[in-house]
Computed example of a mutant assay.
Amino acid sequence: MTEIILENQPAGYVPPKVWSPKTTYGGQFGNINSPVSGARFERDLPVGKHPLQLYSQGTPNGQKVTILLEELLAAGHTDAEYDAWLIDIFKGDQFGSGFAAVNPNSKIPALVDQSTSPVTPVFESGSILVYLAERFGAFLPTERRARTETFNWLMWQMGTAPFVGGGLGHFYAYAPLKIEYAIDRYAMEVKRQLHVLDTHLASHEFLAGDQYTIADMAVWPWQPGSLYGVYNTHEFVAVEEYKHLLRWYKAIAARPAVARGRIVNRTSGQPGTFLLERHAAADIDSALQAK
Rank of each mutant, 00 (worst) to 15 (best):
D283T: 06
T120A: 09
F90T: 14
P60C: 07
S97I: 05
A182F: 04
A257Q: 02
G12K: 00
Y242P: 03
A281Q: 08
I252A: 07
F163Y: 05
A280N: 02
G38I: 10
A208R: 00
Y131R: 08
A215M: 11
N33S: 02
P118I: 10
Q193T: 03
N152S: 13
Q53D: 12
G96I: 13
V18F: 10
E3I: 14
H170F: 14
L45P: 01
Q57W: 15
S37K: 07
Q157D: 00
P35A: 05
H77C: 13
A257G: 11
G261F: 02
L54W: 10
Y131G: 06
R147H: 15
A175C: 01
Y172E: 07
M1K: 02
D184W: 00
A281R: 14
A290N: 04
V237E: 00
F123N: 11
S106E: 06
F151H: 13
P10K: 06
R260D: 06
P121W: 01
V190A: 11
K64R: 15
E124A: 13
Q57Y: 15
P176H: 01
A75P: 10
W153Q: 07
L111W: 01
L111S: 01
W153I: 06
W248S: 07
N152K: 05
G261C: 08
Q57C: 14
S37D: 08
T78L: 07
W153T: 10
P46N: 12
Q270D: 09
K250T: 07
V119L: 00
N31L: 02
R255M: 02
T23I: 09
W248D: 04
P60Y: 09
L129I: 11
G167F: 03
A146G: 03
K178F: 08
G167D: 05
A182R: 10
V258F: 12
P51V: 07
S106G: 01
L129S: 09
T142H: 03
E143T: 07
Y228A: 05
L227H: 10
T273M: 06
L245P: 02
A259P: 00
Q211N: 10
P221I: 10
W156S: 00
N232E: 14
T142C: 01
A182N: 03
N61K: 08
L86G: 08
G166Y: 05
L132H: 03
K178L: 08
G76M: 09
L54P: 14
I128H: 11
R278D: 00
K91Y: 11
K178N: 09
Y231P: 08
S268V: 09
I284K: 04
V122A: 04
G76S: 07
P16N: 10
R247V: 03
R144M: 11
E241Q: 15
S127A: 15
Q28D: 06
F151S: 00
S56D: 09
S20V: 12
Q63E: 15
A290F: 02
L227C: 06
Y13L: 15
A202V: 04
T24E: 14
L6G: 00
A253T: 13
G38K: 13
D285R: 08
I179S: 04
G58R: 08
A280I: 02
L177H: 12
P16E: 13
Y231S: 13
G137P: 11
A287K: 05
V219S: 03
I32D: 03
A257R: 05
A182Q: 12
D93Q: 01
S127L: 05
E7S: 12
W19A: 13
V112H: 03
I89Y: 09
D216Y: 12
P162T: 11
D83Y: 02
